[in-house]
Design a protein around this nucleic acid. Structure first.
Lengths: 133, 133
DNA sequence: GTATTAAAGATATTAAGAGTCTTTAATACC
DNA sequence: GGTATTAAAGACTCTTAATATCTTTAATAC
């Protein structure tokens, strides 16, 4: 059980976009080159982020992607939801109601999600920025 | 991303074995029938649990599986490790050292694992037993 | 109109999970 | 020792999801 590579790429791209000057779009070629990915592949991931409202896309010449207005509210969990979908880590197909085992697993998952929801990407971006200097 | 079915079956089987009278072995046929699984499939899962030291197997006539002596120390995490392996939920292949994103993900994972380590199967077994009565 | 760029669709490849079948080894019982 | 029983191990199949590429379409700037 592992988060997909797409989630990793998405998180790094999000942080990168957060560090761009206001209202400047970055094309998929540049973003893909940065992470050594093919543009078409990263494009799939970026479309998911766009549909989730985490970034905004403008097609056409001089187009590209930029971070959404919600920049300061975007959490790790938001990105994970966008790329992984909103599925449960654990599903007890045997006992449909009130499975004791499932209750424990679900609680652990909820706590992890709560933590990932409390971690904002903007803080990572700021930390990365100050490290570079 | 989801825990495998094997983990679910393993957890249920463990609880069942915990509720057996002391030193009585249960065969894979019985365990499989209970969960509507084929014996050969469940056997694969049971072998993992055996190798992890969570249950003990005796081959041959009148053989089968029984819970290990560590009965009162076995946690959810122990079973998950046995079936899922000991891999990380998240791996940042880009920045090998001190990736800020990876740090956050790893911390969340560690916290979840700590919680699953604190939850003992024996308590679930006892609760299930008292519910049946 | 032309160049540029995101979105969408079709498709191919790979990896992992799920599951079966067969063979081998160990044990109990006669 | 022989037979029935049962776990372990290996080979193999099937299905699904992730990964990835290529092509076409639509939108935008100039």
């Amino acid at each position: 059980m592992r988060y997909s590579n797409a989630t990793n790429f998405a998180l790094h791209t999000m942080v990168h976009l957060m560090l761009q000057p206001r209202d400047s779009s970055v094309g998929v070629q540049e973003l893909a080159a940065m992470q050594h990915l093919s543009p078409t592949y990263l494009s799939k991931i970026l479309t998911k982020l766009t549909k989730a409202g985490l970034i905004e896309s403008t097609p056409g010449a001089k187009g590209g992607y930029k971070i959404s207005r919600k920049k300061h509210e975007i959490s790790f969990l938001d990105v994970i939801h966008a790329t992984e979908g909103d599925t449960s880590l654990f599903d007890c197909s045997i006992h449909h109601e009130g499975c004791l085992i499932e209750n424990v697993m679900r609680q652990a998952e909820e706590n992890m999600k709560a933590e990932l929801k409390s971690k904002l990407l903007i803080n990572i971006a700021k930390e990365a920025e100050s490290k570079q200097k």
